[in-house]
């Protein structure tokens, strides 16, 4: 028997909006520790890892570890029917081939039930080694989204270079080139507006902008984004989910011939 009750239902709505265009079908894994997902996009270039810890739910009952295969587009359609202030409860009986999403309005005067068929998805979990990152960038998530969007109107590949001066995002295309430099800036009124660069050593990597733009769909989840870079390994773009967990996107680099 699985019953997860999330008072801040809008978090689950936002999570689905941020992954439904990157991954079509995925297994949600439920265990005593929490509700998680790990899935690659169809080209195996990007991976999303989601964790919502059990403590973040008002009520978390998971009698045994189960994995539920879902079509994320359909799940997003159902969650779209939940109000932003609704409490969302996810229920599944043992051995059932459906999952039920229950939406309760804050005043409990409206209760909705949406039942979705589960799918068999054979996806293998990848081992993601803990890495020492050469540069860790923490910046306002809206700013990162704006940079990715602006640069993708000029080119389809971005070179992200981190030096002690700051971080530079560069692209080039048919109409010309673009460079955006963000300097470390910690003298801000609110901490979430700071740009922090922890850079044990300079690093420069090349990525496809369309994936980074897809990742920035998670911007509504967090005011800040953490971008961890190391030479020759995938970048991690992480959005914390308020006291519950995180959504992490991994993107393999493009290597200059």
């Amino acid at each position: 028997m699985l019953e997860l009750r999330l008072v801040q239902g809008s978090l689950l709505k936002k999570v689905l909006e941020s992954i439904k265009d990157l991954v079509n079908d995925a297994n949600f894994d439920c265990s005593a520790t929490g509700f998680s997902l790990q899935a690659m996009d169809s080209s195996h270039v990007a991976l999303v890892a989601l964790l919502l810890r059990s403590e973040g739910f008002e009520h978390y009952r998971c009698d045994r570890n189960i994995s539920m295969g879902m079509n994320l587009g359909n799940m997003a359609k159902m969650l779209k029917c939940a109000g932003n202030d609704d409490i969302i409860t996810l229920k599944a009986d043992d051995g059932s081939d459906t999952v039920t999403f229950m939406f309760e309005s804050p005043t409990q005067d409206k209760i909705a039930d949406f039942e979705m068929r589960l799918m068999d998805i054979d996806s293998e979990h990848l081992g993601i080694p803990e890495a020492e990152y050469h540069a860790i960038l923490i910046m306002p998530s809206a700013e990162f989204a704006r940079i990715c969007k602006d640069l993708s109107s000029i080119g389809d590949t971005v070179v992200i270079s981190v030096t002690k001066e700051g971080v530079k995002f560069s692209t080039r295309g048919d109409i010309g080139t673009a460079n955006v430099v963000c300097r470390q800036n910690t003298t801000v009124d609110k901490p979430e507006e700071a740009t922090v660069i922890e850079m044990p050593e300079p690093v420069s990597l090349t990525f496809a902008l369309r994936y980074l733009n897809s990742f920035t769909k998670a911007t509504p989840l967090s005011n800040t984004v953490t971008i961890s870079l190391s030479s020759e390994i995938p970048v991690v773009v992480e959005y914390k989910i308020a006291e519950m967990g995180y959504i992490r996107f991994y993107l393999a680099p493009k290597i200059e011939e």
């Binding site: 690659m40 991976l47 990848l126 993601i128 390994i233 995938p234 991994y250 393999a252």
Partner: peptide, 14 residues
């Protein structure tokens, strides 16, 4: 020309 690498070159199946 930059070549896109795939993630499975970095992350092994468990």
């Amino acid at each position: 020309k930059a070549t896109q690498i795939v993630l499975t070159s970095f992350f092994r199946p468990n």
